[in-house]
Amino acid sequence: MTDRKPISTAPTDGSKVSVMWKNSDGVVSESIAQYRDGGWWVYTDSDTQKKVEPTSWRPASSDDED
């Protein structure tokens, strides 16, 4: 597994990356995200996207995107 990096170093070109983020209940999640429209967006289910404030990232593997 690839080491996590500070979110400030993540690509903002629309690439998909794996990010760690914390929800309003304090639960930490890892999700595939894209930077667009001035923020990081993840899918919470197949139809719903949510803007999140990630703390770290790593490249998304091809397995993550299935």
Rank of each mutant, 00 (worst) to 15 (best):
N23R: 08
M20D: 13
G39E: 06
V52C: 01
E65S: 14
E30S: 12
S62M: 13
G14C: 06
Q49P: 07
T9D: 09
S31H: 07
G14Y: 13
E65Y: 14
K22C: 11
V27S: 15
G14E: 05
M20S: 13
W40I: 01
G38Q: 03
D64L: 07
D37H: 13
T12P: 00
A10F: 01
K50R: 14
T44Y: 07
V42C: 01
I32H: 04
R36W: 11
K5H: 10
S61H: 14
S31D: 07
E30D: 12
I32W: 02
S18G: 09
K51N: 03
D64V: 02
M1Q: 08
R58C: 07
K50M: 12
W57A: 04
W40K: 00
P11H: 08
E65F: 14
V42Q: 02
P54C: 04
A10H: 05
S61V: 12
S56A: 13
G26V: 04
R36M: 06
P11A: 06
W21E: 04
Y43I: 01
S8W: 09
G38E: 02
S24E: 13
S31L: 03
M20P: 01
I7P: 06
T9E: 09
I7V: 05
V28F: 11
S29D: 11
D63L: 15
E53T: 12
V28I: 14
W21L: 02
D47Q: 10
T48G: 06
Q34K: 15
D45T: 07
S31C: 04
W41L: 05
Y35W: 09
S24H: 14
V19Y: 02
V27F: 12
V52W: 04
D63R: 14
K22Y: 10
S18E: 08
R36V: 05
S56G: 10
S62H: 15
E65G: 09
A33D: 03
S56D: 09
G39V: 04
Y43F: 14
V28C: 10
A60D: 06
I32K: 01
W57Q: 04
A10V: 06
P54L: 01
G26K: 01
K22H: 10
S62N: 12
Y43V: 00
P6K: 03
T12L: 12
T44E: 04
G26D: 05
D37F: 14
A60Q: 01
I7M: 03
W57R: 03
W40S: 05
S31P: 05
T2S: 12
W57G: 05
Y43M: 06
D13I: 07
S29K: 13
S29H: 15
S29I: 10
V27I: 13
W40Q: 02
T2C: 12
V42Y: 01
R36N: 09
T9A: 10
S61E: 13
E30G: 05
S29W: 15
P6E: 06
V28G: 08
G14P: 03
E53C: 08
K16Y: 13
D45Q: 03
S46I: 02
K5L: 11
D3M: 11
A10P: 03
S62W: 14
